[in-house]
Amino acid sequence: MKKHKIDLSRFGVIIAWIILIIVFAINNPAFLRSSNIFTILRQASIVGVCSVGMTFVILTGGMDLSVGSVIGVGCVGGAQMLSSGVPIPVAVLVILLMGAAAGTFNALMINQLGIAPIIMTLGTMTAMRGIAYLLCGGFAVYGIPESYKVIGQGYLGPIPVPVIIMAICFAFGWFILNRLNFGREIYGIGGNVEASRLTGVNVKKTIFKVYALAGTLYALAGLMLMARVNSGQPSSGEGYEMDVITGVVLGGVSINGGEGSILGVVVGVLLMSTLTNGMVLMDISEFWQKFVKGVVLILAVSLDRIVQKSKEKAV
């Protein structure tokens, strides 16, 4: 029983990714330089951290649009605390707790009132963005201490710190999903809520944990973004929800919940980052970049479906 079958259903996205790499490498040899590879990874890091949280949420059959706004509040709030002299660990802790609180609030309304997650988080997305602007009156916050920038701009040896944070988050996500009861419960709820409940899963508690954890990860991403741009911009993180969801879905996580893996999401996120980087190197205009990203999403997902369908036929 040692035969481990390779899951063919993920091939579509991996093939698409490899093709992209080949095309970009042929076009510009600088693409494969290690410095550029680290750039790709660093650019992926913020979306990558968020995608772990989003993966949890979507696996339960939920949706979380509040990601970008939590980043925004994290950025502004964090920058304000740091610029007014609050010690770094305290500020970091407060922001992470803020993220957890935002997620808990989402879960509370979803659990107790049965509001659809996409609607509930649409509300928090808008309200939190408002908070980000209210906090700073619409002006960017500067004056972040030098020592904090490490989180966004530092290196550990040749590896950028944000990349390490992303890697830790992915590993952490994989560990939860594959090695803890919590992970099994997430898959169970996404696959069949009622059966999970009747198997003894405390569904509401699990949902709470999922959204709170996701919020915390978004806040962490906000802290990273603040260090990267060296300021607290109230608009930061705007539109990230789409990048994050795209990465997760590209990675093969079923929007209906219960199916998908962190490893797939890693590929999904890296593919998007590779695409952006390669197009920048090729000097493709930003308008075209948007268009191409959308097309790639559709192509990759279609390829997946085709592979899956042929697999179903073979059964």
Binding site: G188, N192, A195, S196
Partner: peptide, 9 residues
Amino acid sequence: KKEGLVLKL
């Protein structure tokens, strides 16, 4: 199917 099993798993 609805209450006993998670069919996708």
